[in-house]
Design a protein around this nucleic acid. Structure first.
Lengths: 133, 133
DNA sequence: GGTCTTCACTTACTTTTAGGAAGTTGCTTG
DNA sequence: CAAGCAACTTCCTAAAAGTAAGTGAAGACC
């Protein structure tokens, strides 16, 4: 079956662990478009909390994936940009994006189309993003 | 900068959210090698708790990424396998693996080589996998 | 010059998710 | 019939993430 896959070694586990933290993929996706400031990232993502964004940026910086540049030009502004290690992540993000385009259907709203409840199974799980409550 | 990337739309966010749950990438990586049973997955991953593995498998099944086949041949056994949607994920996992090969350095152990503490920064964060405690 | 606002974060507190271990069900083996 | 799988659940604790409010420095407004 895809016997040409990279092996499941410690390296892979570390990478999966990184991407397995919430928002990491989205942050990387945005930074691949170019450097961004803290506020821009927060806005671009929309639903991330500043607390977690701050945490994630520190994680990524510690991993050497992004760099933080502070411009103290009085209105103090910081900017985050990808290192080479981070830039190199682009193929992963791109493939994820392609997969999403092919397979993810936006659920427009839990409406039923011709009697069949479209978002049936989704309803019984998903305590993530219950912003509506 | 990579202006040919897929857009940051709802589809991407959903995909990133999926992969942003811990263990998802690793489970997919293993299933890309072929169908696996619950116990095999648990063993293959090593450090996942059965509780979470069970949860993650249900998530993935609900998303239509894997299928659960129960073989009631008295020793009841279940088997998980990828659907087409799941198989199609292979490029993402493969790129992640390639990135990991290029950029992830295995930290052999927190030994100091010639006086310099090797795992210096790693030490102050990482309450994940503190199995050693 | 006192007040207001922005930016980039922190702190404090709550909820959700993950980890760890023991229990459950159904069937088999000694 | 006690023990042992296999595949899960349950229960309980410990990390993460969510939410809101606060901090500090620099302008901008009045």
């Amino acid at each position: 079956m895809h016997d040409d896959l990279s092996p499941l070694c410690g390296r892979f586990l570390a990478a999966a662990d990184l991407l397995g933290r919430r928002w990491t993929g989205v942050i990387l996706r945005i930074l691949l478009d170019g450097p961004r400031r803290f506020g821009e990232l927060a806005q671009g993502i929309g639903t991330i909390s500043e607390r977690v964004l701050s945490e994630r940026l520190k994680d990524l910086e510690a991993e050497g994936i992004i760099e933080r540049h502070v411009d103290p030009g009085p209105p103090i502004r910081s900017e985050y940009r990808l290192t080479q290690k981070g830039q190199d992540f682009w193929k992963v993000i791109d493939e994820l994006g392609k997969w999403a385009e092919r397979w993810v259907e936006l659920k427009p709203a839990p409406v039923s189309v011709s009697g069949k409840s479209v978002a049936a199974k989704a309803a019984r799980a998903a305590p993530r993003k219950r912003k509506t409550a």
